[in-house]
Design a protein around this nucleic acid. Structure first.
Lengths: 348, 348
DNA sequence: ATTCGACGTTGAAACGATTCACGCACCCTA
DNA sequence: TAGGGTGCGTGAATCGTTTCAACGTCGAAT
């Protein structure tokens, strides 16, 4: 009775149970599973029937314990809810699928502790490699990881060391593009809603911003109003604008947001404050996400090759694996592109 | 030399290596790791030093093989790139964190095969339970999974059976809300950009649509123009509109899109065709995603309690685990809410 | 008739962590 | 001083799979 009507399995059937039921050895069952052509038809059928009857499901832990490793890599992005990163992840998956690798995907939410936790989790699970958008200070941990035999590729950031590959978009150039554009429209007082300097993208885009201002003969100290926000999402953008508008001093006439999600929140807050766009405030975002062109005021943004970014990172990782010591580490860098729309330029 | 300067580990150090180096038995190392207070201070320190020196990292497979199970559950959503589902996932994570469970998250991309593959992968990895937004026909597999001891909670769909719990939002009501609104604005010819009937949400929302039309004394056969699209994203929405506008017959004056991503694509295509909104075409979406209120024409949409949906699903799953046989299966259903904006109502 | 290879199958060793019954040393108490 | 705890540590068994040397059997070749 307990075998026929059990509501809940007492124990998962193992390969041994299958072997007993089919009247063969465990080795044969394993062969049926992994090298079916080395088993005679009749035996194979008998085993398959037993597998079906027992509803046998392989135990991945045992499998992997024996094998030592699995066809899996991990990826840690800054924010899984950001369309930019989901598109990158899609690129990663597409490349991995070709080599029948699977992906463990996690979001650090810009928190170094979460990043470290996931890194450890991935390692404990025996991934062959990781793609990471690292927070500040995690480089040493990544180098140590690499030394322990887990390949590392930096994602959306340029590698500071020669023996770790990276795939990035030129963020300095992107930041410059945005601000050069605003300056060319005549703005001389520009707000920059930026994330913490623990995030490399924020540092680089800021560098581009400063360079563009200086290059245009403006003094950053006077022309730039920096607002630092805690998280790079819509809430952060709203928060940034609220603080900006509450501050004393001349209100900027233009604003560069570190990404489109932030810009979305900023636009929402600006609207709530009755600030008209682009007349009273020109706004530029970053990423050119799917909805940027469709907003009340279509958002000027810096476009990046998202899918290609992810695809290339995965490609480097897999090639590093297969080529071994002969692999040449490299820093791949793509160029961003400014897409001008109504949020900055009234003539469009 | 090979031990000091090895660039790449020959083999991951095991608990045995640590034990040897520290001059203790493996049992003691395990105790240091799992019950540190049962080990004397000096021994513990010695072991910790060895762990540090060898850069020892636990092997999750071995650990889990012995333990039999892990504090992990899986979730399969229809589309990870849809903000609706990322918000749901966030709710799931928040509840799981309280019980120190981890989440394996995957996207089926509305493909039953992908769903089945991930389900199997989760099972092989020994998850304790799964939350699934199922495709049509996968119920039997889910019941079988439950019978094999893996708890199942249906996510964003109402359970068709008594002994599997579910957490959903009333999609029939949601569909009705959308169309009642359009009818109240005087529309008598309404397009419905819907996904395939293999997706329960699409079936339910359609049922609500039909009910609303009938309730208003309209004949669905005449009043409703259905367009079925392959995937519920922006591309699908664009495709749907293109096909709608290319078709013969009187053009509808209103349109209900099965979700906001689809609506976004639809709006893009409508704009490309020079159709003005809401004058020539009123548009209603579904989900009220973060950018809905910020679009060129703010999108009327049906709002759902996303975070709560995920949180509750995870809560049911964990309680099912802990309460065992005494657990009462339940169908939780939340109510949707219509948010009226400019894409349907010119007066807003 | 013997040898040989091919084929199919076997069974035990290994993977690395956890667990638990047991042993040892020590101190406290009667 | 014997008896009984207590506190630490040990080491073998165990989880389920894969792998591989070894074995029997059969047919073909010599």
């Amino acid at each position: 009775m307990s075998t026929t009507t059990r509501g809940r399995a007492d124990r998962r059937p193992s390969i041994t149970d299958v072997a007993k039921r089919a009247g063969v050895s465990v080795g044969t069952v394993s062969n049926v599973l992994n090298r079916p052509d080395q088993v005679s038809d009749t035996t194979r059928d008998r085993v398959l029937v037993a597998i079906e009857e027992l509803q046998f499901v392989r135990n991945a832990s045992a499998r992997q314990l024996r094998a030592g490793t699995i066809q899996t890599v991990g990826a840690i992005v800054l924010d899984i809810a950001n369309p930019f990163f989901t598109e990158v992840a899609r690129g990663v998956e597409d490349r991995l699928a070709a080599d029948e690798y699977t992906l463990m995907l996690s979001s650090s939410d810009e928190d170094p502790e979460r990043e470290a936790r996931y890194l450890r989790l991935f390692e404990e699970h025996g991934v062959q490699g990781v793609m990471v958008t690292p927070s500040a200070g995690s480089l040493d941990a990544l180098i140590a990881l690499r030394d322990r035999g887990i390949d590392v590729v930096l994602l959306d950031t340029t590698s500071p060391v020669d023996d770790i590959s990276s795939v990035a978009v030129d963020d300095v150039r992107g930041g410059a593009l945005a601000v050069e554009h605003l300056v060319s429209l005549g703005h001389t007082r520009i707000a920059f809603i930026n994330g913490p300097q623990t995030i490399k993208q924020c540092v680089d885009r800021r560098e581009g911003v400063i360079a563009a201002l200086t290059g245009a003969g403006l003094d950053p100290a006077a022309a730039l109003v920096e607002v630092t926000i805690g998280s790079l999402n819509a809430e952060g953008g709203e928060d940034g604008v609220n603080r900006l508008l509450a501050a004393d001093g001349a209100r900027p006439t233009a604003m560069f947001c570190v990404n489109d999600l932030t810009a979305l929140g900023a636009l929402r807050a600006l609207r709530a404050h009755g600030v008209s766009i682009p007349d009273e405030m020109a706004v530029v975002g970053y990423d050119d996400v799917v909805f940027a062109s469709m907003l009340t005021v279509p958002l000027t943004s810096v476009r990046q090759p998202t899918h290609q970014l992810g695809w290339t990172a995965a490609d480097l990782l897999l090639r590093q694996r297969s080529e071994g010591a002969s692999f040449q580490h490299q820093r791949v860098q793509f160029q961003p592109e400014l897409v001008i729309r109504g949020s900055s330029d009234p003539s469009t």
